[in-house]
């Protein structure tokens, strides 16, 4: 699935959600849920990459494959307009996301590409996994730097 299609119905959510109940829009918790699943898998490989736990090829490969799939979850209903941090509480999604949607999608796609490379090698040895793990973190950071507010 192309990134364009992933996000093609990106703004559809705006028509489905009522502004009066914007702060209860389930999309916010749901997209936060997907990021938690990212961490669930990314973190296991991170612990191995940093030597906090022993490298386990099978567990690393499973985590990388999970991450591959969850990062390809269709995004079209997760980012409705009006669910930015200036409009509602409970989110760190900066309104710049919606102002620079093309760039946001580009950064999201770069993350998917980095994850794909990690998925290809995660079970093939610690050095291989470490080498592919770094760029995934960098891709997360690029988006967090531009589009995520500080925690409150």
């Amino acid at each position: 699935m192309t990134a364009k299609r992933l996000f093609s119905a990106f703004l559809l959510g705006a028509t489905l959600s009522s502004p009066a109940f914007a702060d209860q829009d389930p999309a916010v918790e749901q997209r936060q849920g997907q990021f938690k699943l990212y961490v669930h898998n990314f973190g296991l490989m991170g612990a191995m990459a940093q030597g906090r736990i022993d490298y386990d090829a099978e567990a690393a490969q499973t985590a990388a494959t999970n991450l591959y799939h969850v990062t390809r979850h269709d995004q079209s209903r997760l980012w409705p307009e009006g669910t930015d941090s200036f409009s509602i509480d409970g989110t760190r999604a900066n309104p710049a996301i919606w102002e620079n949607l093309d760039d946001f999608v580009e950064k999201f796609t770069a993350m998917q590409t980095a994850v794909e490379a990690l998925q290809a090698v995660a079970g093939g040895g610690l050095p291989e996994m470490q080498a592919a793990f770094g760029p995934v973190g960098q891709s997360c950071q690029a988006c967090h730097e531009a589009y995520r507010d500080e925690a409150s």
Partner: peptide, 14 residues
């Protein structure tokens, strides 16, 4: 840029 919980750094700390 990774916290102990494997969140990734952002904002002005990046």
């Amino acid at each position: 840029g990774l916290t102990p919980d494997f969140d990734v750094v952002g904002g002005s700390m990046a």
